[in-house]
Computed example of a mutant assay.
Amino acid sequence: MSQRHILICDLKNDPALIEKYKEYHAPGNAWPEITESIVSSGITGMEIFLAGNRLVMIMTTTDDFDPAAKAAADGSNPKVQEWETLMDTFQQRLPFAEDGVKWVEAERIFSLVN
């Protein structure tokens, strides 16, 4: 089995910054240490979609995925911290996000299952 997580974040509303962010996330451009940290944490799939300056991340994980453990591992990984600092130049927090939270998990309010 697996779990699906939907997370939302905004980019700064600057077309040049948005294009640069897209370049960092183009196929093959994410740093290998970042993809390794993602895969090794139990994330089995990840997609990021962009509409205007709003980002939506769809993440598939193993059933035993632990977001707190992922955050702790990322906090002690210098390369992940370097990446996060770089991404902060493009991203901005949602106005309703709690302090220190960049990606806010969305609440599912509807599901059509056939």
Rank of each mutant, 00 (worst) to 15 (best):
G75A: 07
P67H: 04
A26K: 03
Q92G: 01
M87I: 10
L7R: 06
E84N: 13
D10V: 04
T62I: 10
S37N: 11
H25K: 04
E105G: 00
Y21V: 00
S2W: 13
I38P: 04
T61Y: 12
A106T: 00
A106E: 02
Q81K: 14
E105R: 02
G75S: 06
L55I: 02
I6L: 13
I48V: 14
C9K: 04
K20H: 13
D14W: 09
Q3M: 14
D14G: 00
D99C: 02
A68H: 10
M57A: 11
G42F: 09
E33T: 02
R54H: 12
A106I: 04
T60Q: 14
G42P: 02
Q3T: 06
L7D: 12
A71G: 10
I8A: 05
E47G: 04
F110C: 08
R108F: 15
N29K: 03
A68Y: 13
E47P: 03
I43T: 04
L11P: 05
F96L: 06
N114Y: 15
A97E: 05
A51C: 12
E33N: 01
K22Y: 11
A69V: 11
I38W: 10
Y21L: 04
D10Y: 12
E33L: 08
D88R: 07
A97R: 00
R93V: 07
K102T: 14
E84H: 11
D88N: 12
A30I: 15
M1A: 11
S37K: 07
I43H: 07
T35P: 07
I38N: 01
I6Q: 04
I34V: 12
E33I: 10
L94N: 02
P78C: 06
I6H: 11
T85M: 14
E84V: 13
A73I: 10
V101F: 10
L17D: 03
P78A: 02
N77S: 08
T89A: 09
D64H: 07
Y24F: 15
E107S: 07
K20C: 08
E36D: 15
K20S: 11
T44F: 07
D74S: 08
G75T: 07
F96P: 05
N114V: 09
D14C: 02
M46K: 10
P32Y: 09
T60I: 12
A51V: 13
I8G: 01
F90T: 00
F110V: 08
S111I: 14
C9M: 11
S2I: 09
T35S: 08
M57D: 07
G75R: 06
T60G: 07
L50R: 00
V39G: 01
P27R: 00
Y24R: 06
V56F: 15
D14V: 03
G52C: 06
W103E: 02
W31A: 02
P15G: 01
P67D: 04
F90L: 03
M59P: 06
S111V: 13
T85N: 11
T62W: 15
L86R: 06
E19D: 09
K20A: 11
S40A: 12
V56A: 09
I34A: 03
L94K: 01
I38K: 01
F49T: 01
L55G: 01
W31E: 08
P67W: 10
R93M: 09
K79H: 14
V113H: 14
I18A: 01
S37Q: 11
D74Q: 10
L11G: 00
N114C: 12
F110P: 02
E47S: 08
I43R: 02
N53T: 00
